[in-house]
Design a protein around this nucleic acid. Structure first.
Lengths: 348, 348
DNA sequence: TGTTAGCACTCACACTACTTGAGTGCTAAA
DNA sequence: TTTAGCACTCAAGTAGTGTGAGTGCTAACA
């Protein structure tokens, strides 16, 4: 069976109508609403063909057709054309970032909020800086006998902190010294460099405080890799309650429990991490079987061709792909710009 | 109409059964399950009386009775007796805190998680330190021309940070100087004192950097009052999906949208802030009309008789008050202890 | 005087049968 | 190849019916 122009038109009509109404689409509806210039009977014949090709299916005999995962796939790959954002929406993004330019935490959170607001689905934002962020400042602060707080600030404005145990013999003065040396030596370096080249040098200078130094280095590593790299921000999760496919509380519960698992999200988002551009995962294409009724649109942002993280929109398979892909594309572009500004010049 | 022992027994049976089953309770059920030694007919007479007193009501003619808000109120005030936690549960709390003792952020979050885990309802934790927390450390870090990050650490281990604009004439060295002076002068003081007594002194010493100093002071204030004071942590919100009264997605949506409003929660929690002990707000007693189907159990924690914040459990009016009150009571006691350790000695 | 058995009554809920209408597939004619 | 016509299917809504849990009332009983 080969795909001709009219079949495409019919498939497109079915998908668009189903996305809009969430109801199975009948031949009559298509003939009436989408003016293909043929009768319902002809459309029925085409639909029979499309069904045979696996692009659409029937919930039950006397219902209309709904798109299958494969149908959505064909639509996304071949039929869908990118849309444009309205002036207003462009402004929302611009203003949204303008006010949050100060540190990476706000930028990430703002991105998630805007994504969900613009699409009305749930948003997932993942940062994965992979050690490329530059170190800015470290401070060791004595909290009590045997305890100190380590605060690490990165070039992007992320602040990581943790309380660590230290030998009781170490004084506030020692901590100040260590902070000073670390700051001097690590100034402006990227994490990768810190690990590989500087350790020995600093060890030498601070031989006395080896133990505490170890812990500080651990935190820098953690701070700039683990915490920053795998951080996942969720936004607008409750938007899914507005989708008719989630009017059943049980489904909501299973989906929410899935979203609580950072690992799972991380896996889903990472599967396409190196792909670049926009990726669409539809229903069964998502590796998790409990997510068969969802689709995920993922975009990667970064500096040049070096990826820094990805952003995604999660909704029902019946999501408005045109709009979501458009929004995700815009947001990745904007986010890349903002991150560039944040990491390099901060030129404002 | 006066309340006698048997009426109390009947009311108690109705409430306990309804809490357990969420189904209206009939006279027959009570006679069978709760061995009052009288026939259903007698119980019916008692129930008629209780209904007249406004303590129970009938959803429709041929259904059993359910407790009214007033009925729950009577139960909570007069009939309910505090329960005990099992050894296991006590251990959960102990261990939970043991691993989070390091900074106030983890303690607060851990409290919320434990509260919701132990009760299976939603948990609200509010900190309101009111400037009593002591200042620990401040650091000004130059991020770029005209921008600096202010990091403030409190005695409790809370870290607040913000990027501020500074005059371009100020150098990294200036910032270091300012940090030094501030640290020396503010060491160990409580926020209240800082505001009132030290400002002039420091102003004098740092007359040159007045402008940046102003901003730094603002952040200290914010950091130690606003951000810390009004911070609200929510835990286990999705537990409400397990309650049969929230099997309706619309209700879930309205409740969730209410919980997103920090102001509203703050108001609810603050209404009883100075009361001390445990407060129970049932249905219509909550000032918000969209929360008529919910109850809120609030406890206040703090040092001695000085309140530091409150913790609450939010569930349907049909919540298990005995259990929730018991848990909240335990948690406030434990939390107060932990905060004491955190603020004073850190003796471990 | 309080308690209880008996009974008529109410009403949500489950079940059934029936109708409706949207939609299909097939066939034959244009 | 397209389309009109028609028989067929099936979910969903509607109406009618029983069932049972529960009540209130009354009269008898301890």
């Amino acid at each position: 069976m080969k795909m001709d122009g009219r079949k495409q038109q019919v498939l497109m009509a079915i998908i668009q109508d189903f996305i809009a109404t969430a109801e199975p689409v009948g031949s009559r509806t298509i003939a009436r609403k989408y003016k293909l210039g043929v009768s319902p009977a002809t459309i029925r014949n085409e639909m029979a063909d499309l069904e045979e090709m696996g692009l659409i299916e029937q919930p039950h005999t006397s219902a209309g057709r709904i798109p299958s995962d494969l149908g959505y796939r064909y639509y996304v790959d071949n039929l869908m054309q990118r849309g444009e954002l309205t002036k207003d929406e462009e402004d929302i993004i611009k203003n949204g970032y303008e006010s949050k330019l100060k540190d990476v935490g706000h930028v990430i959170q703002g991105t998630g909020d805007m994504l969900s607001q613009l699409t009305n689905y749930a948003a997932v934002v993942m940062t994965a800086q992979r050690g490329r962020t530059a170190f800015k400042h470290i401070q060791l602060i004595q909290m009590s006998e045997g305890q100190a707080m380590v605060v690490v600030v990165t070039e992007t404005g992320a602040v990581h902190h943790r309380i660590i145990d230290i030998p009781e013999s170490i004084t506030a003065g020692d901590l100040e010294t260590i902070s000073g040396v670390l700051n001097r030596k690590l100034q402006g370096r990227a994490m990768e460099d810190i690990r590989l080249t500087l350790m020995k040098e600093i060890y030498f200078e601070l031989a006395k405080q080896k133990q505490i130094l170890n812990k500080a280095m651990d935190l820098i590593n953690e701070g700039l890799t683990l915490e920053a790299e795998d951080k996942i921000y969720l936004g607008g999760v409750f938007n899914i309650l507005n989708q008719p496919e989630f009017h059943n509380v049980e489904k909501v519960k299973t989906l929410l429990s899935l979203l609580e698992q950072e690992k799972l999200l991380h896996k889903l988002m990472s599967e396409v991490f190196d792909a670049g551009g926009i990726t669409v995962r539809i229903g069964g294409e998502l590796s998790n079987e409990k997510m068969q009724e969802c689709s995920l649109v993922i975009g990667t942002y970064g500096l040049g061709d070096e990826p820094m993280g990805s952003i995604g929109v999660l909704g029902p398979t019946r999501m408005d792909y045109t709009r979501v892909v458009t929004v995700v594309e815009h947001m990745t572009r904007n986010l890349s710009l903002v991150m560039h500004r944040l990491i390099t010049g901060r030129n404002r």
